[in-house]
Design a binder for these strands. Structure first.
Length: 259
DNA sequence: ATGGTTGCCGAGCAA
């Protein structure tokens, strides 16, 4: 079972690039972020016509997450538990019924800039809520995949110019510590389980020719429960997607599971 | 230091 995460930065603007990628790479499950659409306006045909089931959790203008799957999706839930006041669409869960059953969560973790301020406070509070949900999911002892745009640069080697990110919400020590707290519950960050060293990124800014200079950051991650980590066969980043016509500023990151 | 770009949607905000 191939599971990918992809921040598409707007479903309407990606009406060509997203179906092209789905056709070429054929992930079984695609966790999509920043759909930037309400559910009623989502062009479902773009995805359903390729043989995918689709579950969306949208919001007007901003945010929004979705799950596309060639396998049936069951027990879909929307929204990150822990704050009934939070109306931002950043979390969706579903059970994928493949050869094995895998519980997946698609997430769009808050950016948090500028620091300090309410947006950074919201980011840290959101990560605390995510930690609680991640711990709860572990107790099921099932294969679990938490995939999405984490807006976290885990290590200096995960960005081309660490000095430029020193005071940024994506790279502050407090942000990285909150990310490690989730990992230390018992999750494995899939990419780093298989690939070491610098130069591997999942996002390049649209500005100043960042992609051409490979001035990127690695902020899209797939976290695996122990039972999912046992099934890990391969990982990858579809870097070439960033060179496509009308690309997202992120590229897909994927895993292949024995499931 | 500023501005550089894109997407939402039709003015700025978010990233």
């Amino acid at each position: 079972m191939k599971i990918a995460t992809f921040n598409i930065n707007g479903i309407k603007a990606r009406h060509k690039a997203l179906p092209a990628w789905l056709e070429e790479q054929s992930p079984d499950v695609a966790l999509l972020q920043e759909i930037k659409s309400v559910d009623e306006a989502f062009p479902r045909d773009l995805i359903e016509d390729l043989g995918y089931n689709l579950e969306t959790h949208g919001q007007k203008g901003f945010n929004g997450v979705a799950i596309a799957s060639k396998y049936p999706l069951e027990d879909v839930t929307r929204g990150l538990p822990g704050d009934p006041e939070d109306v931002q669409a950043r979390w969706i869960e579903a059970t994928v019924v493949g050869a094995r059953v895998v519980r997946v969560a698609g997430l769009y973790l808050p950016n948090g800039n500028p620091v300090p301020g309410p947006k950074y406070d919201y980011k840290l509070a959101w990560m605390k809520r995510m930690k609680a949900r991640a711990a709860e999911l572990l107790r099921t002892e099932e294969p679990i995949v938490l995939g999405g745009d984490y807006n976290v640069i885990p290590q200096p080697e995960d960005c081309a110019r660490p000095a430029a990110w020193e005071k940024d919400a994506l790279f502050l020590p407090q942000t990285r510590a909150a990310f490690r707290e989730i990992l230390n519950l018992g999750y494995t960050e899939a990419f780093r389980a298989r690939v070491s060293g610098p130069g591997h990124y999942s996002f390049w800014d649209y500005q100043a020719g960042a992609y051409q200079r490979n001035d990127g950051i690695r902020i899209d991650h797939l976290l695996l429960s122990p039972q999912a980590a046992d099934l890990l066969r391969d990982v990858g980043i579809d870097k070439d997607e960033r060179a496509r016509d009308k690309p997202s500023d992120h590229v897909p990151v994927w895993i292949e599971l024995d499931a």
